[in-house]
Simulated scan of single mutants.
Amino acid sequence: MTLVSASGFNVPIGGVTPSTITGQTLTQAGLYAQDQIKFDRFFLLLGLRNDWTTTVTDNRMTFTSTTQSDSHVSWRAGLVYEFENGIAPYVSYSTSFQPAIGVDRLGNPFKPITAEQYEAGIKFQPPGHKSFVMGSVYQLTQQNVLTTDPLNVLFQTQTGEIKSQGVEFSATIVPTEGLNLVEAFSYNNPKITEGTASEINHMPAFVPNVMASLWGDYTLQSGPLKGLQFGGGVRYAGFTYATSANTLQIPGYSLQDAMIGYDLGAISPRLEGVMAAVNATNILNTQYVSECSNATNCLYGQGALVLATLRKKF
């Protein structure tokens, strides 16, 4: 796989004149193997992958070129035990490798992003039912995470290490035919463990500590309006910080969504799988901050949006 990027010209900031006209080519090759083993009620998943990447960065102001080559082995393992009553506890461990395309404000190519994660949880699906519940705890450690450069917001820089610990819960409840309730909640406690003195033990910029959502929809199963579907829900994101030094806190927000649709297959068998729908997001037109590049440069999120769609499932 080959990717090509280019960075544009930038006005010098803070007295530093970066070499900012660059072109970059990333070539990546990977080899992986995966196996799933079942014995009794245990399921074991094992995976191994090797990636090779080569990044060529051309400085179009100095007419020089640099080459960066990386090779990394990542793997994962997971073990699940399925009880007869539908309860399935599991544990897993995984590592990852992701090349980071682009250059910093000085024209230096980014190092690959690496990570490792420990996770344990429980899944539950009652036999013969569509409802599904899942809860988990995890610890994720990432190195070389990209973040906005505080000295020049048009560029990114890399944070040494971020460690996140959290819990997640999700549920899909089907109490009766046609009615679906979907819930999700996550609490994350990310901390910068390696970086500048102003960043250590602080939260990464614009990473919410809490996220939650609730959605419900119902499809009429009989009568003259059979196939009519309607639903609504709410999404919540907790507070964040505009900078990794946590000098400015951005308040959390909640958004409301709604939809109405009609399965045209209820009219004619020829239209089986065709759905016409109208979806509305942020229906109360809530004003909220969606992202910040630094403490003085933030953007508002999308206002009320209504989309009409026509889709077909095959």
Rank of each mutant, 00 (worst) to 15 (best):
S7L: 12
S7Q: 15
I13Y: 09
T17R: 14
P18V: 02
T20G: 05
I21N: 14
Q24E: 15
A29P: 04
G30V: 14
F39P: 11
D40K: 11
F42N: 11
L46C: 07
G47C: 04
G47H: 01
N50K: 07
T53I: 05
N59P: 10
T62R: 09
S65P: 01
S65F: 00
S65G: 02
D70P: 07
H72L: 02
Y81A: 09
G86F: 00
G86Y: 00
G86S: 07
I87D: 00
Y90N: 09
S94E: 02
S94T: 06
T95W: 02
T95F: 00
F97R: 03
D104Q: 01
L106G: 08
F110H: 03
E116M: 09
E119P: 13
E119Y: 03
P126C: 10
F132R: 14
G135K: 06
Q139V: 11
Q139P: 10
L146P: 12
T148H: 07
P150T: 02
P150S: 01
V153G: 05
Q156S: 14
T159K: 04
F169Q: 07
F169H: 01
E177L: 09
L181K: 05
A184V: 03
Y187I: 14
Y187V: 14
N188R: 13
P190W: 02
T193G: 12
S198N: 14
I200R: 07
A205G: 12
F206G: 05
F206E: 14
N209V: 07
N209Y: 00
A212N: 11
G216N: 03
T219Q: 13
P224D: 09
L225G: 03
G232E: 06
V234T: 08
V234W: 00
Y236G: 06
Y241R: 01
A242M: 06
A242G: 06
T243K: 00
T243S: 08
G261E: 01
D263C: 12
L264Q: 15
S268Y: 06
M275R: 15
V278Y: 04
T281S: 15
T286V: 13
E291L: 12
C292M: 03
T296E: 05
Q302T: 15
A304N: 12
T309Y: 01
L310F: 04
